[in-house]
Design a protein around this nucleic acid. Structure first.
Lengths: 225, 225
DNA sequence: GCGCCGTAGACTGTAGGCGAAAACCAATTC
DNA sequence: GAATTGGTTTTCGCCTACAGTCTACGGCGC
């Protein structure tokens, strides 16, 4: 029992604290990288970024450190940070791992999900389908991410979610051109997945998710030609 | 063709460069944490560590950042770094993920390994068995890690190896008391695994590795009682 | 005696500065 | 004309200093 004031929640403006500067710098840089504003291979100069963001070099350094450990930039000693250049081989390996993690998440979701969670999935799926019907690609992509995140949440494994989150973001970075094209079929597969989860059918959920992510991988390889 | 001097390789001492200070601080702190010199929940004061290591606060900060993203320490805003306290739930989730990653690695190793790689595995396994026979627990533990790392290497998936490496280290941190006890049976399972890989039997390799890691998980839960 | 407030201490978060290593470019020599 | 070498510039790595914030403790009022 935290407060004794009797105030209902939400009445207090919750005075927003900006939070550590390095985190905001991290978010900003990640945004710039994923949106291709900073292109792969580009040399990121600390002082430039600092001046551009209106902060000192220190928060920029710490943000670059984090981006380095998460694989977004390569930090060559005594040279600085360079936006990571994805290779075809690495993209393929990332997709393999993603398939693995997402399939496991689907299995755990099928095992653990409650009716409320399944309802949430169906809600997201319905929104996604209508977005596709309205040719709203951006909304469809966003809802796709939220759907996968929800499945991951229902799996109830925080460690798995953490890893999958990182892998997913990088996969989306590599495949944004591809992912935008495959809208309609993706959502019918989502429907099947939700049905399997609702049936508590772990095997089927795993298989569908595996097939689903493998399908995106196929599309990538077709694109290369 | 690099040199035109005609000097044979190895004659030059290759004067070792200390490398970035932050990396060495990172290694030192990781060592201190895994060896329990720094206990879970302990408050890590930057200036103390800096003074103790004979460096400034800056490299310490960057090392702590990295340790934070990798889950070794928790970084509470405006309070500092605290050694991460593992919970039973988290340990279980980590083991689930580890099982997943190692099993996939075994499958890929079975699919891709060459005869040289298999020979290396058998060599490591033989060394491990003799270490167990000699009751050299430390050597057995080290060889166990090297064997798993070798399987991961043979899998030929750098992304998978990266994730598995982090998960494995943390699992070993949680389970060091347990892992030391289960020596003998572990190595018979390793033998079976290598046989399956040598036979290029992906299914069997996956199953054995899954069973193998699940077995350690069981031992953990038994230990709690 | 109990609880609240104010103050002091400590630590983190951020900024700026100095030395050093690497890259770049031009001049020089073979 | 090509390779090398020397100097110059840019940038990083690290240190030091200052401001903001959280915690803890002692005094004060009730």
């Amino acid at each position: 029992m935290l407060p004794t004031t009797g105030l209902p929640y939400g009445t207090v403006p919750r005075l927003e604290r900006p939070g550590p500067l390095r985190d905001r710098v991290y978010g900003a840089l990640l945004e710039l990288i994923t949106t291709r504003a900073l292109q792969p291979g580009q040399h990121l100069v600390e002082s430039e970024l600092a001046g551009h963001l209106g902060v000192s070099r220190q928060p920029v350094r710490e943000a670059l450190q984090r981006l380095n450990t998460e694989g977004w930039v390569d930090l060559r000693p005594a040279q600085g940070a360079f936006v990571h250049e994805p290779t075809d081989e690495e993209a393929d390996q990332l997709l393999t791992v993603r398939t693995l993690l997402e399939a496991e998440a689907a299995r755990l979701a099928a095992a653990n999900a409650g009716s409320a969670g399944i309802a949430a999935l169906e809600e997201l799926c319905a929104q996604g389908e209508s977005a596709v019907a309205a040719d709203d690609v951006d909304a469809a992509v966003a809802l796709n991410a939220r759907l996968h995140a929800k499945v991951m949440e229902l799996a109830g494994n925080a460690v798995l979610a953490e890893l999958a989150g990182q892998v997913d973001r990088r996969v989306r970075w590599y495949y944004t051109p591809v992912a935008r094209q495959r809208g309609r079929q993706s959502w019918t597969e989502h429907r099947e997945l939700i049905a399997a989860i609702a049936d508590r059918d772990e095997q089927r959920a795993t298989a569908i998710m595996r097939h689903h992510t493998e399908h995106t991988r196929k599309m990538y390889h077709d694109r290369e030609k």
